[in-house]
Amino acid sequence: MFEARLVQGSLMKKFMEAIKDLVKEANWDCTGTGISLQAMDTSHVSLVSLLLRSDGFDPYRCDRNISLGINMESMAKIMKCASNDDVITIRSEDHPDNVTFVFESPNQEKVCDYEMKLMDIDSEHLGIPDTEYDAIISMPASEFQRICRDLSNIGDSVKITCNKDGVQFSAQGDTGIGKIALKQNAVIDKEDGQVSIELNDPVSLTFALRYLTFFTKATPLASTVTLSVSAKNPVAVEYRVDDIGYIRYYLAPKIEE
């Protein structure tokens, strides 16, 4: 059988919120390592990859590797039934037709049990190559969310330019141009609020704001986001989640014809 109990159940709710608008259905792959998911959006423009390590659960039991084929909208609806302070347990048999989600209140006075039908999903698994990125930008996740929101008012795309002066996000539309420049800040003792840039080569790439905005749904999961950019390659947007794992998004760039 498979059983994974997450004391901080709100994390599962947040992971769900971070993928449900991007991915319609996906396999949650459960192994001894933990629970992982890889899926593309319906347009195949972006890819999401997440890992919830087994040691983030208490207890975690996986007798046999299984894939839980799940409709995200249905699971999101069920996750909304869990309170933020609930303990969430995911449970299924070795050859499952359905999965059970159990939500326990902290004092265990209330226990909710939701059973959901599984789907047969024939998903394509993509190999993500190791890439030497031209620039790796770390910034507060809330700052990145703000930039995507603000520039969405100006245009459909954002041009990310990274050089020795810092990183610039710019958008262009019928009404004009918006530019947001961030410099690496020198505050050492305030790690969460830092912008840091690891620059190997100056780089400039354009991405669809619609997808980056979907990615920022992961903001409640982490204080920091990392953007890894390389010429003519997808950007990797990573949110590392304390004590359990990560959610990474990849977005193909827009290329000038």
Binding site: L47, L126, I128, P234, A252, K254, I255, E256, E257
Partner: peptide
Amino acid sequence: VAKQGVISQYFSSL
């Protein structure tokens, strides 16, 4: 005009 790429151009099937 910029053209949106797809992810499978960059990542291959396993």
